[in-house]
Structures are given as structure tokens and as C-alpha cells.
Design a protein around this nucleic acid. Structure first.
Length: 238
DNA sequence: TCCAATGTTTCGCC
DNA sequence: GGGCGAAACATTGG
């Protein structure tokens, strides 16, 4: 689950704010109140009256409200007066009061505080790194996942293996700008249930522009799968 | 039916 | 101590 989806989760949990937990599969939550949530990158940060949680959905995690998954045991289940929230296959960690101070909000791609100059500075300090790795770097672009990476590189006509050192400062600024814009676009599309139909390259077979084949292979240090069109995203150097 | 994959952390080795 | 790769974890849509 990528950053924009976590923002949507915080919104879907809004109706339960200030509500008391009537029952839970975790005894200690019973009787507590859910205070609210916020997101940082791919972290869903939940505040309760006596505890704070960080939920990370990793690759397979999900949450449901009111309609549980069949034959699945939730990692956490919270029943309120007007609904039940279920969290599946996620990493749940308790975090201390005042955790907000531990998070750098200028790194969170969905935050208004995101600092493009900071991202640029960090990228320029890693000239040998490849764009595919830096876009996925959660200490630069918290919340960007593999879908956003692929779509942004396609929009910018950048080959995933492009090294930072061959980009002009303007190209780096544009890459950052488009990444942040796409994160918000992803959020809008997901809310409207039209996200998948708007993918241009991710899990596609043909390039929507030149109709050429889309290459699908692991790239960079991270070796995460990249989808790209060699004709539209050429690698212009060795 | 099989298997890659919207991801991160930890561990051991050099 | 840093960097790296492997492994662990865990699920399901295509």
C-alpha cells in the first residue's frame, strides 16, 4: 500500500474519532477511545486514549470497515458503536506519545510540508544512484511505492537505470515536482475508483504512446520490478 | 494451479 | 561500522 492509500485510510477512520472501543481481539483496547490518525509515508499512525500505534501494510496488508474478509483472522479488530474496523496482514507497532516529533514531515510526499529543495539536495548528494532507487527511497520520498515509481518515470521519459549525475538540475526539479503531483493524482484516482484504468505503464503490455513492447525487469539496487518502454524512456549513456 | 508482487526489517558476512 | 545480500514475513489476484 502506497502513501496516498494511507491518507484515504485516515479519512475512512474519521467517523470513529472520539468513539469508545466496545470490543476487540486485543483485550487491552477494550474501553479505550480512538482519538484520531494521521499518515506519514506508508505509515498509518493511530492515536488512542492510552496508546499509539504505527500500522504498516507492507505488500499484502489491508483494512476493512464493517465487512470482514472471509476466512481471515485480523491482526487487529476494533468494534465501535456504529461500525467495526479490521486490519489484516500488517505490521503493528506501539509508538510513544509525542511520536509526531520523531517524524520528519518534510519527507512525507502527501504532506503540505514536503520540502522539494530538501529532496533535490539529497538527490544531488547521491550522483551515482539510479532514479528507480531514489524514488523508492523512504528517506527521500516517503510514501512512494513501485506503482508511483513506474508511472512517474514513464511520465518523465526516464529510464529506471538513469543515474542522477547525468540529469540537469532542472530535470531533477521536474522529477520531484511530478512525483509529488502524481502522488496527489494517485489519491484522487483511488478515491474515485479509477486508479487502475489510469495506469499508463504499470502492468501494461504495450506503450500507450508508441505501442512498443513494455520491458518488465528488476532494476537498481533494490531490484524491484520496473515497467518501461525503451523507445520512450531510452538510456542515453553507458 | 502457480507464482509474482502496491514492502520492510533483521541477520550474518565481508 | 557500513554495505550488501539473503531470508523472513504473509497474501492473493491474475
Amino acid at each position: 500500500m502506497e502513501g496516498p492509500s494511507i491518507v484515504i485510510a485516515t479519512e475512512e477512520l474519521k467517523p470513529f474519532e472520539k468513539q469508545k472501543i466496545l470490543s476487540s481481539n486485543r483485550e487491552n483496547f477494550i474501553g479505550m477511545r480512538y482519538i484520531g490518525s494521521r499518515s506519514w509515508g506508508k505509515h498509518l499512525l493511530l492515536t488512542f486514549s492510552k496508546i499509539n500505534l504505527r500500522i504498516h501494510f507492507l505488500m499484502f496488508g489491508s483494512y476493512r470497515i464493517d465487512n470482514p474478509r472471509e476466512n481471515r483472522i485480523p491482526k487487529l479488530e476494533l468494534r465501535f458503536k456504529q461500525g467495526i474496523v479490521y486490519f489484516y496482514s500488517c505490521a503493528i507497532k506501539e509508538i510513544p506519545d509525542g511520536f509526531e516529533e520523531d517524524y520528519d514531515w518534510t519527507i512525507d510526499t502527501m504532506s503540505e510540508e514536503f520540502s522539494k529543495p530538501r529532496a533535490k539536495k539529497v538527490m544531488l548528494s547521491k550522483p551515482k544512484s539510479k532514479v528507480c532507487d531514489l524514488l523508492m527511497d523512504q528517506t527521500i520520498f516517503a510514501g512512494v511505492g513501485n506503482i508511483i515509481k513506474n508511472e512517474v518515470l514513464y511520465l518523465q521519459k526516464l529510464h529506471p537505470d538513469t543515474r542522477i549525475e547525468i540529469l540537469t538540475p532542472k530535470e531533477i526539479s521536474d522529477l520531484i515536482k511530478v512525483t509529488i503531483k502524481y502522488c496527489h493524482q494517485f489519491y484522487e484516482w483511488k478515491k474515485m475508483n479509477v486508479l487502475k484504468r489510469n495506469w499508463k505503464i504499470f502492468r501494461k503490455k504495450k506503450c500507450p504512446v508508441c505501442l512498443g513492447p513494455i520491458i518488465k525487469r528488476p532494476t537498481g539496487k533494490l531490484q524491484r520490478i520496473s515497467h518501461f518502454c525503451l523507445k520512450c524512456q531510452p538510456l542515453n549513456y553507458v
